[in-house]
Structures are given as C-alpha cells and as structure tokens.
Nucleic acid binder design. Sequence first.
DNA 1: CGGCAGCTTGACTACGGTCAATGACCGTGG
DNA 2: CCACGGTCATTGACCGTAGTCAAGCTGCCG
Lengths: 244, 244
Amino acid sequence: MTAVTDCLDCPLRCRRLFVPMTEDELAFQRRFKAGERLVPAGGDILVQGQKSSALYTLLSGMAVRSVTLESGRRQVISFVFPGDLIGLQSGIMGEARHTVTAVTDTVLCLFPRDRVWKLFRNQPARAYDLTWIAAVEEHFLGETVATLGQRDATQRIAWALVRVWRRLAAIGMDQDGTVPFPFRQQDLSDAVGLSVVHTNRVLSSLRGAGLARIAGRRLEMLDHRGLSKLALMDMEKEDVRPIL
Amino acid sequence: MTAVTDCLDCPLRCRRLFVPMTEDELAFQRRFKAGERLVPAGGDILVQGQKSSALYTLLSGMAVRSVTLESGRRQVISFVFPGDLIGLQSGIMGEARHTVTAVTDTVLCLFPRDRVWKLFRNQPARAYDLTWIAAVEEHFLGETVATLGQRDATQRIAWALVRVWRRLAAIGMDQDGTVPFPFRQQDLSDAVGLSVVHTNRVLSSLRGAGLARIAGRRLEMLDHRGLSKLALMDMEKEDVRPIL
DNA sequence: CGGCAGCTTGACTACGGTCAATGACCGTGG
DNA sequence: CCACGGTCATTGACCGTAGTCAAGCTGCCG
C-alpha cells in the first residue's frame, strides 16, 4: 500500500519537458487532484463509447490510446507517457471516443470533472495551460497524420522510435542510450499502420544498419541523428509544455 | 468594398452545428473580433514555421491545412470550412506548425492574440468553449489517423467525402443533395495519402456504383447511408460544438 | 516440462504507386 | 473569334512495397 503522491513531491513537474509551476499554481494543483487510480498492465483506463467524466494525468507507467474500427482493425492513435493528459475529449465532450489501455502497471492522478469548471473560473492561467496542452496534442496528431499519409514503412518506424525516445529522454527516463519500451511490436505496427510482419522486418533492418534496436523491453538509440534524418524529422529545439 | 460582418448578423452561429451563444457572450464576441481579413483563392492564411499571433475563424470560403515534409511530399491535415477555428496552435505555441491555404476566396474573422488572454481572464465560459473546440479538433484528427492507418483506398475516399458532406450540410450549405467542393483531386489525394491517379480511379468507381459524384466543383451525395457503410462510419448523432 | 504469447522468417500476392500520354476546360491575347 | 498555353481530370501499362498466410522459434510463467 503506497501513499498517494503529493504534487509537491511530483517527480515529473521539474523535468525539462514541462513548464515550471508557480507556488500559487502548485497550491491549487494540490487541491485540484482528488486522488489516484491504479490500473494494472492490460487494464483499460478509458473505454471507447463509454461515459467518463474524469481527467487524468499519467503519473507513472505507459499506455496506448487506440480506436477499433467496425472492420475489427485497431489503430493506435498515440502512445501515452508519464505527464500526458488523458480524457480531455471525454471530459469535455461527454463520452470517450477512444480507448486507453495500460501497457504496464500505471498510476493516474485523478481530477474530477466538476473541478475542471472551477479551474476555468478561478485559475485562468491554468485554464490557458489546459488549452495549451490540447494544442500540443493536436500538433502531434497532425504530425502523425503526415506520417501515415506520406512516409514509407521505414520512415514511419524510424519516426515512431525517435518520437518515443525523445519524449522519454525529455523526462529523464533514458539510461545509457536506452529508454523503456514496453510495447509489443503489434502495438507499434498498429500505431504506424503496418502489418506486424513488415514492422518486424523493418525493425531488424534498422538493427542491422546500426540505427536502433529493441531488446528486453527497452529501446536502444544507436544513432539518433541518423535515425531522425531517415525519418525526415528535423532536430527541432525541444519545446516545453505545461503539465496538469 | 463590403462592410465587416457584425457578429450579430453572423450567418454561421445559428446553424445547427453550433452551440447557440448567450446575449452576454455575443456582446463579448463583438468586442473580441478586431476585424476581418480577406485572402483570395490560392493565398496563404498561415505559413508553416512562421510566427503568427492571431486567431481566426473562417467566416466564408474554404481552405486546406497542410504540412510539407522534407521529401517534398505534402499532407493535407484537414479541410477547413466556415466556422472552423484557425491558428490555435500558432496562437498558443508561438509559431505555425502547418500551412493554411485558401482554396476559394475567403473571409476571416480576426481575433488578436492579446485579447485571447483577456478571454481566459474574463470569460471563463468562452475559454472553456475554446478548449472544447480544441478537443473536437483533436477528436477529428484521431479519426483521420485511424483512417490513414487502417482503411484501404476506397474506404478512405468514401470517408473523406462523407466527412465533407456532413460538415457542410450541418451548416446548411447543401442544396439538392450537393455541397460545394472546390478542392482539386490533388488536395483530396494529399488528404488521404493516395496518389492522384488512384484517387481518380476510386472516385470513378464510386460514381459508377451510384454512391457519390464530384462534378462542377460540387460533391453530389447519391447514397449517404451506403457510402457511410462503405467507409465504416457509424451514423453518429451529429454533435454540436461552440464557435468562436 | 508444457503451454502460450510474442517474435522471426519464407513464399506468394495484390493494392496502390509511378510513368506517360491524352483529353477536357478555361482564361488570355492576337 | 479562334489559337494557344496552363491546369486539372482521366486512362493505360507496368512495377514495387507492403500485406497475407503459414510455419517455426524464443522466452516466460505456471
């Protein structure tokens, strides 16, 4: 039985990916957070089509956001990492449009819906941040659309690996050039719109080319610059964003 | 020389797609709007990588939001229709991440960036609406990702046509089962990640099947239910959203 | 030790891309 | 008024990337 993490002790907010909070915001944040929710690996955090009012921030662990078409095919919309907001759409528009599934054991900070309104009413700066977060999310989805529409198989995989690596490095989860990678190849292929078989072939070719390697639930980045170039990604300055 | 449209006379806000505004909100809105901007067909409303502070709502005309990769390939992220918000990302995150190009002559309502902060400060309900709009946008991008990742060529085109048709019908732009469709086949193919050639073939097969037809810069929907089914789209209840 | 989930490899196929040529339409200028 | 040039739509022939099917392989957990 672990105690609930106080926002004061939040291991995420001081990471370079996130905009620092003021004293005042931090105080509000502590009252805003209503508790935590634990979802074990394989469990659903949010289910497509189901009413759900809460907002979450992923405190630890990883997840995938996905939709399933009537054809039965699954698309992974995005990977979800510590610090990511979950449930904005369902929280605002009423019901969840996609499923969020825990890939590892996860801990979520819980923000009840009715307090969100209070945030807009009393904390305009935080409300602005929330919109900012939504804009960032939108930006990444735009990137994803461009990837699925215009990049070939190798570029897609390279792109996805670089994205994951940069995101995790930005919250300090890299060690010796590796980051945790708990996703199955099936998850990766569902994310980039390729078959598992082809995904596997591409991965082994990237390994062969000495660019990156997945092994033991970890992703090893052997040539960040090379892989980024292959993926047609610019080495954009890492931008920061708020965290809720 | 046409006069600027007063928000009171806005031809969009009363359409069934949009949440009605209160008297109060309308009053604020009139002060919020700083003027209009006209962009002729083919002109750029926003340019990828360029600083831009303003927020716009497309008042009339149509546009495409797109990004161009280093390979030179272009991805159309979304079509932009009357009532859509433009520039949230650039307005909040600083610089535009994608280009918005006018496809017809367009009129834009202009909201200066510095007034956005005033909105968060003084109009929490409108700020909430802005976030809502961002969430809706995010939802649609998620759909797009799923389409590019999991639907085949025919389903993609069908999906795109139905989306356009529903969107325009929801603001009353349908006449005799047709809606304006000023986009080139090149735009459509860049939107769904297919070559123009294949797009053309699919379109003619849809025409042959009596499902839909594009002619004379108009899209004729011959079998909405059939095309939706083909596109694996549910006949979801039309949901409403706020307009800025 | 057995069973299961996930990874890997091979053989064959097909969907959609590319290249190329022709056609339809439209605005402009001689 | 018609010839010209440009843009966009259409069609044909060929090809290559990635999907499918199917069989082994590996590693983990009971």
